[in-house]
Design a protein around this nucleic acid. Structure first.
Lengths: 123, 123
DNA sequence: TCAATATCTCAAGGATCGTTGAAACACGGA
DNA sequence: TCCGTGTTTCAACGATCCTTGAGATATTGA
């Protein structure tokens, strides 16, 4: 997914708030199975309406997605959106400057080998 | 440079504003030689005090740096800070999820080969 | 030293954002 | 159908952010 500037602005705005950044980190850890709105709110210590507000913000920004599961609404990280943001940062903010790309490539390699160990990756 | 959460929050906040995002992109393109505050303000169509405000914001966030050159103040991208932000995103938001890291690794590879062509990279 | 240029700082205003609590809505079970 | 649970929506308020314009500061050249 290639992010355009307005989407990237939204995504950066979404991540520039403590509660929302915590939510994203928790949801990434939770993986594709996700977590209910209530559980997320509890995990980040937010009121139910506060959690709802921030989750809607993150969803609008394309960083998470939701599905209903009986009474609960389950939110999960949108890995496509997240990787789009990383790509945007690397492409538009680092164009031709390997000082930025190289450390990132190292992290990617780490992540990739770690994932291979767990058989979670095709590399 | 490893970014802590509060620094990452600042950086995301800095990038979540149109004028500042444009400034960063222009400064990355400009490279280490940088640009004067006036030239940046003109390039992003901001008043002098407005440009000063946003440049100060970006500098506080660790994304750019400044030096005086006679009457002008020259701002340039802080590539260490930028790569720290990319790393933060990849580490903390993608932990163990190669869906995010792999596309980024591809971009890094592109960037690296492009840079090699121009002899600007040691890879 | 004086004037001109480049930039920053400050205060004021409006706009946007986040929080809170109350009320509405959706779903499942009795 | 009614009640309880989980979640969202809404309005109101304070806090923060961005813009503007005026004035202050730093540097250079005459």
């Amino acid at each position: 997914m290639i992010l355009e500037e307005p989407q990237a602005l939204n995504a950066f705005g979404a991540l520039s708030q403590e509660t929302r950044l915590r939510m994203i980190r928790i949801l990434v850890q939770a993986g594709p199975k996700g977590m209910s709105a209530g559980a997320i709110g509890e995990a980040v210590d937010a009121s139910s309406s506060g959690a709802s507000f921030h989750l809607a913000h993150l969803e609008r920004a394309g960083l998470i997605q939701s599905r209903r599961e009986s009474r609960s609404i389950i939110y999960s990280a949108n890995f496509e959106g997240l990787s789009g943001l990383v790509e945007f940062l690397m492409r538009d903010c680092c164009s031709g400057h390997p000082e930025v790309c190289l450390p990132a490539a190292a992290v990617a390699a780490e992540c990739c080998t770690a994932a291979t160990k767990e058989n979670a990756c095709a590399c």
